[in-house]
Amino acid sequence: MSIQQALDALRTDTPSRVAAAADLEQLAAVEAETVGKRSIIAEGRRSLGAVPETDRKDLGRAINEVAVELESLIATRRAELERSAHAAALASDAVDVTLPGRAPKRGTIHIIQQALDEVVDIFVAMGYTVATGPEAETEYYNFTALNFPPAHPTRLESDTLYLDYGDVPEEILLRTHTSPMQARYMEQHDPPVYLVVPGRTYRSDPLDPTHSPVFHQVEGLAVDTDITFGDLKGVLEHFAREFLGPEAKVKFIPHFFPFTEPSAEMHVWHNGDWMELLGCGMVNPAVFEAVGYDPDEVTGFAFGMGADRLAMARHGITDLRHLFDPDLRSMEQYR
């Protein structure tokens, strides 16, 4: 059989052999026999030198044609076999992806802290700064500087927790509000003042669904040459919309605090009822006098709100005690 005949036979036989190769190993064997070093193609190429020059070119071309054709055929088949081998490997590696994932552990920030931070951020965006103050406070800053008369009932032990500290009886107490920082800050800074004070506060109230001896407030204070009750309303209305959403409906009703005059409570419409959100008012001139500001030169407003209540209202918590019960099943819900 001439080389040409052998090539023709190879050309005819090989496709079915390639197709019949069931795996890469079998294909490799077919490849070795058909286009490998011992194949007719390799043999033909080696023998080209002995072929008469006139035929050499044609035969060489014919060998190459067959070689290219068969190599392409084998490559296609190899790709096919590789694909299915890969698919089989993946199939055998498959798992049940609906089993629980390996979640990195996630802690949580207490929702009271979240509320404190969020309130602070809203006021920071309005140009306020932040300060914090001592929780064990003097009666002067907690009461006297804020225009509480010496005989005010809130000073009673039934309302205020006192500490056994220092030489003067009932001089050191646990602050009943964050308001002492109003006086402390104004003593240390000249006007204008735009300040919020987040922090922990205390009252002599046993823990029950709506009271706690420990609670949290954010105090606010704005003092400048021309602050009015209109500014107070505008700023706090803006806060309510930022915190509760653009549809938040609020109303201001007159109230009483010794350190503001006029005083008001801001109520918001929440879950079908008016809810008291914060107390506020124009800084009482007596407070300005106590800190060395001239009440004829400056006016200001102050406000204070309970962060605990904000957190409760937002997350549908009706019993304050949950916030102070460090049960992880509660805390894991915080997000």
Binding site: G127, Y128, P192, Y194, K233, G234, V235, E237
Partner: peptide, 10 residues
């Protein structure tokens, strides 16, 4: 009493 949004300089 109309509200007025007053920005601070803190």
């Amino acid at each position: 009493i109309p509200g007025r949004l007053r920005m601070g300089n803190g």
